[in-house]
Design a protein around this nucleic acid. Structure first.
Lengths: 230, 230
DNA sequence: CGTGACTTTGAGCCATTTCAACACGCGTGG
DNA sequence: CCACGCGTGTTGAAATGGCTCAAAGTCACG
């Protein structure tokens, strides 16, 4: 069960090599430091971007400052609204990141010339919609412990996503390096930072995970985690 | 602010009339009674459907029976996974409904022949993704009273969606006819049925709404509702 | 080392859930 | 026409999971 959205079957890497090169040619690259936001400037300025490297969050906020992270994007993911309306979510780098920006005019023209791209984008977007909807079950109906367990499993799978074709026959204790602070985990799961912290120490005390450092989690008993995930 | 997803700018009604007719020709119509589910049968059987009439829910469930409604679809909305993977959510009629079903083979062929359709579908899907993400803020971060207020405003807007081009200059007390039971409202908002009920009577006691019957809500003070929506 | 940001831990509280009883509306059948 | 039963909704009282507030602990970095 995957929630946070990663490379889908309709990954853009499925594009022709020369198409990809052409696409990159019309974009300009930009580096982001952790905490830095991509602001969608003027109307016909930057509207779409492709993540080259790093991890970014999409977030939604209430007027009084509460935040909900509504998506986490990894390399090869697309962000932005290719067509139509104003952009609706903040986009902020969680790690050092590089993105490739396109302005609307160029991107629209490119899409028109390459129906293949639109098709891939559609497949990708449908996949993300599915992921996002699954995540709603977690937000609306799961307890704190279920949320944490689901989150850890999800993040492990996401970070282990096959980059090449390495298969992983052995899955003993795996250490995952979280690109998130406790506060960000709380904002992903709809919890408070204290609850996240308490759940982590509970899992550690139960021998289900080990916490070598603030940003590392070593899963010792993934069966137990899966049982907790609900 | 709109959450539940309705006709987007990329509404399929933007298709040519003859294209729409051709699309309808390759589908078969099916009627559903309230509570009846659309099951996605064999691999290359029904995979996509277009809502003609009625209201349906998309829902996600935990193994132990908790449910979260992850989307509500109205006439002219599309449901299903046009390409790739297994369908991930249950689809159940909330009212009497009619849908137009397509099997994958036909639909894929049609899409290939009509790039316009894919484009519209992409716009539509991007819009739904935005709506769904906004809904996550509600699920993860809002209190029961904020959820209820948001829900009522959202449902009012959705049910009042312009069918023709009638503008509504006067917006005095409006009665909305909910296509949802209390339990379904709870499953949309990630609450219990009791909490939903209590919030409704609180709003009634405060003079913000009137409740002529179980399925009707008359909004008396929409400003107050908006203030509560967070 | 010292400073500041982040994290953990504790204690009390409160919103929502849980559990349980009751009310309403409506169709069926006596 | 009324009695009955059943699904649905409401109301109450008690329990509780997660939140809030507060303080102490860690770590990275100058």
């Amino acid at each position: 069960m995957r929630y946070l959205c990663g490379p889908q079957p309709g990954d853009l890497s499925g594009l022709d090599v020369d198409e990809l090169a052409a696409l990159n040619a019309i974009g300009r690259q930009r580096a982001l430091a952790p905490g830095e936001s991509l602001i969608w400037e003027a109307e016909d300025s930057v509207l779409v971007a492709n993540v080259i490297d790093g991890v970014l969050k999409l977030s939604s906020n209430t007027e009084d400052g509460r935040e909900q992270i509504v998506g986490v994007v990894y390399p090869a993911d697309f962000i932005g609204r290719p067509f139509g309306g104003a952009n609706s979510h903040g986009v902020t780098a969680l790690t050092d990141a590089r993105v490739c920006l396109f302005n609307r005019r160029d991107f629209t023209a490119f899409a028109a010339a390459h129906p293949q791209l639109e098709h891939k984008l559609l497949e990708r977007t449908l996949g993300e919609l599915d992921c996002t909807r699954r995540w709603m079950l977690l937000l609306g109906r799961k307890s704190a412990s279920e949320k944490i367990a689901s989150f850890l499993l999800e993040t492990r799978d996401r970070l282990n996503a096959p980059k090449g074709c390495e298969f992983r026959f052995e899955d003993g204790p795996e250490t995952i390096e979280l690109p998130f602070s406790r506060q960000q985990i709380a904002d992903i799961l709809g919890l408070t930072i204290e609850t996240v912290s308490r759940q982590f120490t509970r899992l550690k005390d139960a021998g289900i995970v080990d916490l070598p450092s603030r940003r590392e989690v070593r899963i010792l008993d993934s069966a137990a985690l899966e049982a907790e995930a609900g």
